[in-house]
Simulated scan of single mutants.
Amino acid sequence: MDYLGDNAGLGLTAEQTDKVLQFQDLTGIEDISVCRDVLQRHQWNLEVAVQEQLNIREGRPSVYATEARPPAVISDHLTQHIFYTPPTDGSGSGLRGFIRSIFGLFWTVCYSTIFAIFRLGHRFLRGDNRGYITNPMEDVRSFIKSYEEKYSTVHPVFYQGTYSQVLNDAKRELKFLLIYLHKDDAVDTSLFCRDTLSHSDVIMYVNTHFFFWGCNVSSGEGSKVSQLYKPSHFPFLAIVVLKDGRMTIVSRMEGYCDPALFIQRLTNVVREFDVNLRQARQDR
């Protein structure tokens, strides 16, 4: 536990300092400024602030989560970390696989706007029945249940809310958001779920640094998010963080990677973009 000599320059009263130290002890959050910010958002109600953190760790939406329109997400093409691994069955290797991956990236970067306009026109003219009958919350819960039945209950904590809710929570709580889009029949889906996501080091790292949200692309909610992120290969993951006041995609990962490589990729992204979260905390 850090000792707040002279309030560590935070300008707190003695009572507030005591609550910050208690909150730090109860939650294990090491960063004093983060503890202060959480308590401030809860009007210095220690009990409510601690309970909120427990909810988040269990994957439940915060009391602030809303079904309102999520914040816009932009893609930072200049500094974005892009990782691609060919399918383990060899279908994506060699010159053909390389050309396919380059074409997929080119399509994602240059033609996403055109595709979005076309999709909007198609929905206007013919409608999208799936969008009307789907229940986003149920889609997420169904995915988590199916995942645990098929693979394992040992995995990073899935956020048990909609895409809109997790975006709002990640922005408010100033945390990295790790999005996982699941496709049942992809070559390396089973290997990634059983080998990588169940690894203890992966679980610890993801639970510590991220909100982790996943959904099956065959569901209504998963399909909508897939249309936003345009994955070319699966498993697909993206990292989103508040950067310069906007929720920004700072990394895309496609294909299988073992636990050590996965943690290395996550660590590199967190190290580079954590400065944006620190700056956002100072600005609040």
Rank of each mutant, 00 (worst) to 15 (best):
S142E: 14
K19E: 10
R284N: 14
I114M: 03
S93A: 15
F211V: 05
L191H: 04
S219D: 01
K19F: 06
K150S: 15
D139S: 08
K243N: 02
D37A: 08
P61Y: 13
E15Y: 05
T17R: 09
T196E: 00
S146C: 06
R130V: 02
C35T: 03
Y180H: 11
W213K: 07
R60Q: 14
S218D: 14
K230D: 09
Q227H: 12
Y64C: 00
L181D: 00
P136M: 12
S232A: 13
F210S: 10
H233Q: 13
R126S: 03
L26V: 01
R172V: 09
P156M: 10
F211S: 00
S232L: 06
H199E: 15
P61H: 11
Q53G: 06
T13I: 07
L242P: 01
V269S: 06
E173W: 07
Q24G: 08
D139A: 05
T27K: 01
H233S: 11
Q16D: 01
G214V: 13
S219C: 03
P70K: 07
E149S: 14
T66M: 01
F234A: 02
P235A: 07
W213C: 10
H209I: 05
G59F: 09
L261R: 15
R130E: 01
A280L: 07
L242N: 10
L167G: 02
R119M: 09
L10S: 00
F115R: 14
V269H: 04
H233R: 15
S223L: 10
T13K: 06
D37H: 08
S91P: 01
D6Q: 12
L242T: 07
F262C: 11
R130Y: 00
R284Q: 12
T13D: 01
S190I: 08
Q279C: 07
T134I: 00
R57E: 12
H199Q: 05
S101Q: 08
A170L: 06
C193E: 04
Y163S: 09
S164F: 00
F176S: 11
H81D: 06
T88C: 04
R271C: 12
F98E: 05
V187M: 12
F158M: 14
T79P: 00
T248I: 12
M137D: 02
Q43Y: 09
Q53F: 10
D2Q: 13
L125P: 01
G255L: 15
N55M: 15
E173Q: 12
D31E: 13
